[in-house]
């Protein structure tokens, strides 16, 4: 056990400080006649305002865990508490925002109408909606594209619009499922900048699923490493770079290289296991 891990796992915390509590979470799927165990006995907490990355190879169940927290999938065993309240699957938890891997912007709505969708649902007046949409459009750097349909945008622009559609309702907990997985490296780092600036300002509690170690290091306070199927927590790592971080410069520090190497081997083992499974 290295000093890196202990600092993340043993620091005592008041229970009021816990935003998300995941207890003994398991999930099995029935596929044809075989049972696939996707997640096995996963337990962790997330503090208020913490940025946690769930890192692991594909098939390690990290997205399944996220989707259970989001109430999209019903767990086979275990429970999830958000602000002390149990998550009921199929019912959206207030204050929780979700950003999908694939942008799910509605193709029949313009960029502005997509971003304002959540406000429309809760009956916010057209005037207030317009103001808040304009603000979000500006923050996402989408000025001039308000009336374009998503099909006219590039991948990065679409993902920014999708991010704003989630953020406009000001969720305090943000669940992100490989949101930048489909973007090229440069666009991805741009998106990291966008996300870091938003997070620094609003201090949401973030759960960020990724298989990209560099991304996890750039963004997170803590990395939870998942093993290959069945997904279990293999390790946890504190990422102790100073805030506010610069998504490009942070990668050039010796500490980044040190952490990267340290986690890389552990992650690599799981990638190999995942391949042979």
């Amino acid at each position: 056990m290295s000093a890196l891990e202990t600092s993340a796992t043993t620091s005592p915390r008041a229970s009021a400080d816990r935003r998300v509590e995941v207890k003994g979470l398991s999930k099995s799927f029935q596929l044809a006649k075989t049972t696939i165990e996707a997640v096995r006995d996963v337990t962790f907490d997330v503090r208020r305002g913490e940025f946690v990355a769930l890192l692991g190879p594909s098939g390690s169940g990290k997205s399944t865990v996220l989707n259970m927290i989001a109430s999209l999938i019903r767990p086979t065993a275990g429970e999830i508490l958000i602000d002390g309240k149990r998550v009921v699957s199929g019912r959206a938890t207030p204050n929780v925002g979700y950003v999908f891997q694939r942008d799910t912007l509605f193709p029949w709505r313009t960029v502005a109408d997509n971003i304002g969708y959540g406000l429309e649902l809760s009956g916010v007046s057209a005037r207030e909606r317009k103001e808040r949409i304009a603000e979000c459009v500006a923050r996402a750097g989408l000025r001039g594209f308000e009336n374009a349909y998503p099909s006219a945008l590039s991948g990065g622009m679409r993902q920014r619009a999708a991010l704003m559609r989630t953020l406009i309702v000001e969720p305090q907990i943000l669940l992100m499922d490989e949101p930048f997985g489909a973007l090229d490296t440069h666009t991805k780092i741009d998106m990291h900048e966008v996300l870091l600036r938003i997070w620094e300002r609003e201090q949401q509690t973030v759960l960020f699923v990724t298989h990209d170690l560099g991304e996890a290091l750039t963004l997170a306070d803590r990395i939870i490493l998942f093993s290959a199927r069945p997904g279990r927590i293999k390790d946890m790592f504190a990422v102790d770079f100073a805030r506010a971080r610069d998504a490009v410069k942070v990668r050039e520090t010796p500490r980044y290289a040190e952490l990267f190497q340290h986690i890389w081997h552990s992650l690599g083992e799981e990638f190999i296991k995942g391949r042979s499974a």
């Binding site: 509605f106 969708y117 649902l121």
Partner: peptide, 27 residues
């Protein structure tokens, strides 16, 4: 209908009727 759309709407707080009106019918 793409489940991603209905899930996105649901997670943004849409009721079943709002999902029908704003996602199912347009798509």
């Amino acid at each position: 209908i793409d489940e991603g759309f209905t899930n996105a709407a649901r997670l943004l707080g849409a009721s079943e009727w709002q999902i029908t009106r704003t996602v199912v019918i347009p798509s």
